[in-house]
């Protein structure tokens, strides 16, 4: 455990920085929670999109997209101040920094997942079941996508530009996931694009894990593999970007 002591010490600091910032809690917890409750009661009788079995998994992934913003912002702020420079003098390695940032977000995503499913289940008890348990490990997978993107963008963006870049990810998750509207009416090109990007796949992974239906390969395994590929790509990019900044000492 001593081998990982710097990683855990850094993760502990990062968790405190996140949870002691009321703005991050509002966006990562309160806003998605309000949307889940309001959209269910306003729209669930109008369209299946807003039935809790579809809404709750969508909200979980939507809330995770804010991890990109707050992970990226934390890294950009650390880079912008002399804070990371100070830690480089401690001899900490780039892998310890990257894992420290990533591990700090895991408790946040667990709280998001449990809370939004729990509240969804209280409103509509039909979603309670073994599907919820399947969703928890898969939520960790989908959260890694947004955490990886946060580390990547936080490593290359300034504290002024990270907000805009992360907002593009949040918007993409909102628009390209199909969580707010049915995709049947869209052009085939648009649907193909959505199927190639990770956002709809991440939402599908959660929805199908909750419902348990569908083809095991085409509707479960393929989206998981696509999301996993994007997770790997985002972390490889994040490690490369962070390390190149550390090597150049241009932090």
């Amino acid at each position: 455990m001593r081998k990982f002591s710097k990683t855990f010490a850094f993760a502990k600091r990062n968790i405190k920085e996140i949870v002691r910032d009321p703005i991050s809690l509002i966006f990562m917890i309160l806003l998605p929670l309000a949307l889940e409750v309001l959209f269910y009661f306003i729209f669930h009788k109008l369209t299946a999109q807003f039935e809790m079995a579809n809404l709750a998994p969508g909200i979980v992934v939507f809330s995770q997209s804010f991890l990109t913003l707050f992970t990226g912002l934390l890294i950009a702020l650390d880079r912008g101040s002399a804070f990371l420079t100070r830690l480089f003098v401690c001899g900490a390695r780039s892998s310890e920094f990257i894992f420290g940032y990533a591990i700090a977000m895991i408790p946040v995503t667990l709280v998001q997942t449990v809370l939004f499913f729990l509240v969804g289940g209280i409103i509509d008890p039909s979603i309670f079941g073994v599907g919820m348990l399947r969703c928890i490990p898969l939520a960790l997978l989908t959260s890694l996508l947004f955490i990886g993107l946060g580390i990547l963008f936080g490593s290359v963006c300034s504290e002024k530009s990270i907000g805009g870049v992360a907002s593009a990810v949040i918007t993409a998750q909102s628009v390209l996931s199909g969580m707010w509207f049915p995709i049947e009416g869209l052009s085939s090109g648009m649907v193909t694009l959505m199927k190639c990007l990770p956002f709809k796949n991440a939402t599908d992974v959660m929805r199908l894990a909750l419902s348990g239906g569908g083809d095991p390969v085409k509707e479960h395994l393929v989206p998981i593999l696509i999301v996993t590929a994007y997770v790997v790509a985002s972390f490889v990019g994040a490690i490369f970007a962070f390390r190149s900044k550390m090597r150049s000492k241009n932090i």
Binding site: K6, K12, R13, K16, E17, A82, R86
Partner: peptide
């Protein structure tokens, strides 16, 4: 100690010391 103040702003003074010592 660089010319910019390098501290964890949302940690207490005690937590800053403990954090940096752990690092």
């Amino acid at each position: 100690s660089m010319q910019e103040t390098a501290i964890a702003r949302k940690l207490t003074v005690e937590e800053n010391i403990a954090f940096y010592a752990a690092m």
